[in-house]
Design a protein around this nucleic acid. Structure first.
Length: 428
RNA sequence: GGAUGGGUGGCCGAGCGGUUUAAGGCACCGGUCUUGAAAACCGGCGUAGUCGAAAGGCUACCGUGGGUUCAAAUCCCACCCCAUCCGCCA
């Protein structure tokens, strides 16, 4: 959520930003409503002040008649105050609703345009491999090694759910373990998080459950929702808190399941594990001061690179264009891994994403920071970044590390965790 | 899930319809004193909104949300959380 005063004082910039990000909002109307709200607020406060004065004078009334007349005056003032307050509250609700739909401002260096205008800013250390055989996709490899059961997943929970089996389970755990260990060693406090969160927390992080196009599963008759990412719970962890600036940046890495309805995604390239309703993810999250957030964003990007370099998976990094940013993001980098089995002859597929949300989430979640010896507080900045989403990482590993005979070499860093160097196809 | 007791400023803790401007203490910050420190004494000590050029006002906030009243930390209702005991349970 943007700051009201900021919107009013930078109306043109906000308008332009909305245009760039493909959001529609009548900023002029918003500015008018806000001016009117401020007037009503002042009126209500003034009436309340007068009413308080009268109330306080009642104890000093000299006789009963005097007392009764003061009570009558007080009652009248309270009624007027209530009316003014109600007018204010209605405007306030309307304004909040409008503001809630405004996207964050955009980093000046973020590319302009939409989905196709992302700029490639780096490539990984691992070269895209030239196969001297026709590489299989992860589903074919899964068949050879008995790794997945999508049919059973569909029987149990519907299309988009799946069972991992055999080496896939060990690979899933190994990837989680690798990511958690890697980040723990680099100053991130590992946490496991709830897989459900209150609607209010979803709103605070910029997710909109219960809309027609929602990506979120909700639990009927409750305020609970299955989380789409640990970003929700990690951000919510500090909701309403005031953090000590000296302790920041506060770095966390959270392990959670992620649930997504993928509404509207039908028909898009989504074979196998690529686009599913549930997966497991190790997520980085940071609370920083405003001064720190750009640097921490670069740090997260470089950690994501290091993770995939260490895994030996080829990837490229793209700087997402303004029109393709989600609401809360000020800037976003995606890592796209090379997936040899995707499309006709391999394609890049998004495996991680890191966003600097500046104070957009912190304002809704009311997360502030305070410096010793300084008066007042400020909203913190929040950042998130995927370390490893095991489903998509698994696709990249399986497809890139396959051999002509159908066996799969285990990436070196995962060997101690998997207990083997090579996955051999089951006897058919 | 049942019973009981609780949720008040950074912390402890009083207040239980209007002399509260939330007492008092601890912690913290500034000062006096001191060679320095401690002690003692004096002063300060929350967050947000709002008005003001500033000084400084004003408004809201005593777990949360409603209600009663001219007036609520205080009375009423609902809910949440914590503690202890019991039950259940991985």
């Amino acid at each position: 959520m943007l700051d009201r005063k900021f919107i009013v004082s930078h109306a043109e910039a906000v308008k332009e930003n909305c245009l760039r990000r493909g959001a529609t909002c009548d900023i002029d109307r918003l500015v008018r409503l806000e001016a009117e709200r401020a007037e009503r607020l002042q009126a209500a406060q003034e009436l309340n002040r007068l009413a308080n004065e009268v109330s306080q004078s009642i104890g000093k009334a000299t006789d009963d008649a005097d007392r009764q007349s003061r009570i009558a005056k007080g009652r009248e003032l309270r009624e007027q105050k209530e009316a003014a307050q109600k007018a204010h509250d209605e405007l306030d609700a309307e304004i909040t609703d409008l503001i809630r739909h405004l996207p964050n401002m955009t980093h000046p260096d973020a590319p302009l345009g939409g989905e196709d205008d992302a700029v490639e800013v780096a490539v990984g250390k691992t070269a895209v491999r030239k196969f001297d055989f026709k590489p299989k996709d992860h589903l074919e490899l899964g068949q050879l090694h008995d790794l997945f059961d999508f049919e059973a997943g569909a029987r149990v929970a519907g299309a988009g759910f799946y069972f991992l089996k055999n080496a896939a389970v060990r690979l899933d755990l190994a990837l989680q373990h690798f990511a958690v260990t890697f980040l723990s060693d680099r100053g991130f406090t590992p946490v496991t998080t709830p897989d459900l969160a209150l609607t209010e927390i979803l709103h605070g992080t910029g997710f909109m459950p219960r809309g027609p196009e929602t990506q979120i599963y909700s639990i009927e008759n409750t305020e609970l929702n299955l989380v789409a990412t640990a970003e929700i719970t990690l951000g919510g962890m500090m909701a309403g808190q005031t953090l000590d600036s000296a302790e920041m940046p506060l770095r966390l890495c959270g392990l959670s399941h992620c649930f997504r309805t993928e509404a509207g995604a039908a028909g898009r390239a989504s074979k196998g594990l690529y686009r599913v309703h549930q997966f497991t993810k190790v997520e980085m999250f940071a609370f920083t001061t405003p001064e720190q957030s750009d640097a921490v964003h670069e740090e997260m990007r470089s950690l994501e690179c290091e993770l995939f370099d260490t895994l030996g998976v080829p990837y490229r990094v793209i700087d997402t264009a303004a029109g393709d940013l989600g609401g809360p993001a000020y800037r976003k980098y995606d890592l796209e891994a090379w997936m040899p089995g995707r499309g006709d002859s391999g394609q890049w597929g998004e495996v991680t994403s890191t966003s600097n949300c500046t104070d957009y989430q912190a304002r809704r979640l009311n997360i502030r920071s305070k410096s010793a010896g300084q008066k007042g507080t400020q909203f913190v900045h929040t950042l998130n970044g995927t370390a490893i989403a095991t489903g998509r990482a698994m696709i990249a590993v399986l497809e890139n590390y396959q051999n002509a005979d159908g066996s799969i070499t285990v990436p070196e860093v995962l060997r101690p965790l998997m207990g083997t160097d090579l996955l051999v196809p089951r006897a058919s």
